[in-house]
Design a protein around this nucleic acid. Structure first.
Lengths: 146, 146
DNA sequence: GGCATATAGTTAGATAAACAACTATATAAA
DNA sequence: TTTATATAGTTGTTTATCTAACTATATGCC
């Protein structure tokens, strides 16, 4: 069965992801207002380190769906902000393990709260069942393309 | 009724829009493979001009959800590629109207075909009814945040 | 041991996005 | 008519993405 369910006018916003862009912009504004000098992309790296500290850059590539140069530069900037520290692995000297600093840990609670707040604003008046459908569809889309 | 339906692990991918990123990357690869020297962002501007030629930069801002500096630079690059032309409006000299060149028009059919192909690949095995739900949810998200 | 190959990370160059500050033109109010 | 204000677009700065080319280390095979 064909899946030609996108008329031309709808195709655009699906491809360009205007919903996720809007969510990211709103969250960035909240960070700025709260005086947090942190980009969403930097936060997304911290997010995965809060789940498991000491990940390698390659593991961060996989978790965040970014390529290696992108992670190199995000880690560069996070190091400048003194939020993470590169530690060369003793077993395999090709590997950098990335560790959170105490400063980074003070950001976890505040930023996660703002992220949850943003999602609740975004999903206002959307029935829970539809949210589940949407999450499932977006996961299939991702799996279909990777 | 609260909308706290995102556990922490799911929150991330919704915010960062990994599905739309994957779609954009796939489409970009198709452009590159087809020898089209065109970014997805540039294509998104052409897309709106194909719907209505001669839009002002401000109108392109609204259509593409970008700010003015972004459109200024996208139009700069599209002009370098000789795909559009800025024409100062006679009635209001603050306004630039953006017109497609014949070269741009030769790209329409090919690129739209690749975009539809990409979406069909992305939505493989997703029931049409769920696609509709997903589109509706993403629209509400966008409206809630803008 | 020595060589091919794979993997981890970096660097360089181009394009793009967000924000702030700016120029130029148009409109409205005094 | 002059002055204030709003609108359209540009420029500069920082951060991020992608591709390609690169360095360094590890692994596997002869």
């Amino acid at each position: 069965m064909p899946n030609n369910h996108f008329k031309k006018g709808e195709l655009y916003s699906f491809i360009t992801g205007k919903a996720s862009t809007a969510i990211a912009r709103r969250l960035q504004k909240k960070f700025n207002t709260a005086g947090l000098n942190l980009t969403i992309e930097q936060w997304s790296v911290l997010y995965h380190l809060w789940k498991e500290d000491g990940k390698s850059q390659q593991e961060l590539c996989n978790s965040t769906f970014r390529d290696k140069p992108s992670i190199t530069r995000l880690v560069d900037n996070l190091e400048k902000l003194k939020l993470v520290k590169r530690v060369s692995s003793a077993e395999d000297r090709r590997i950098n393990k990335i560790y959170l600093t105490p400063e980074a840990n003070t950001l976890q609670e505040r930023t996660m709260h703002l992220a949850e707040e943003t999602l609740n604003e975004a999903l206002q008046s959307v029935p829970p069942a539809q949210i589940e459908v949407c999450k499932a569809v977006l996961q299939i889309v991702y799996d279909n393309l990777t």
